Simulated assay, not measured.
Amino acid sequence: MCCSVGFARSLGLALLPLALCCIVANLLLLFPMGEITDMQQNRLASYIWYFGGLGGGGLLMLIPAVVFITLGKCSCCWNESLMMCGSVLAAVVGLVGSGYCFVISGFALAQGPKCFTSLGWSYPFAEPIGRYLLRPETWSQCLQPVHIVEWNVTLLCVLLGLAVLEFIICLLQLTNGLVNAVCRPCCYKQDLYDCN
């Protein structure tokens, strides 16, 4: 079981920078090209306001990261079982957070950015959904903010990738915790001997 606690801690240490990167990527989406005017004038795409990276992949992901990192050392069999159950619950929270980040980022990527075109402020790539991603020559329809399509596509792809990594890490800990819960009765006598 000591190995499983060490494994959980290493997963928590891996989650921490991923969560921070999600927060930074989402914050950058709020300020296209480093400008604040688009946010102030409500010109951002609607899905950006769902804070998939900031809330789901970022702040919510800090819960499992902290729980995994702070798991105690092997000292008592009963306490260790409780710790692993807590880490399983934290892993479920992480799965929900990373799933939310992935879904919102995917919808935002499919919708495309809100930008100023020859017809005014609109979503020029909303229909057909996501096709603009395969046709970069159409990106010049967005006149302002400059390079907004590249900005959004890059950051949303980063968020999608980070969400997948976070999901895999939380799934590993969920499996780790559940395997230990199932194997615990088999090893109970050995654990009692080790704890004495």
Rank of each mutant, 00 (worst) to 15 (best):
G99D: 01
L171Q: 08
C77M: 11
I168Y: 01
V93C: 15
G56L: 06
N180L: 13
L89T: 08
L71P: 01
T117F: 03
G161F: 00
N180A: 14
G112P: 03
S98H: 05
G112Q: 00
V179N: 09
S140N: 12
Q141N: 04
S122L: 07
M84C: 06
K114M: 13
E150R: 13
S81R: 14
L95F: 02
M83V: 05
P128V: 11
P136K: 08
L165D: 03
L54I: 09
A108V: 03
G161K: 06
V93H: 05
F167A: 14
L143Y: 08
L89C: 09
S87Y: 07
A181Y: 02
M61P: 03
L119S: 11
F102G: 08
L95A: 12
E166V: 01
L109R: 06
L155E: 09
L60V: 10
W121G: 03
K114S: 11
S81A: 13
G99N: 05
P124A: 03
Q111P: 02
T154W: 02
L172G: 07
M83C: 09
S105R: 11
V164C: 13
A90N: 09
I168F: 03
L62F: 08
Q144A: 15
G177N: 04
P64S: 09
L159W: 01
W139V: 05
I69K: 12
I69G: 04
H147P: 00
A110V: 07
P113H: 02
C157Y: 02
G112M: 01
N176V: 04
L89I: 07
W78R: 15
L160S: 02
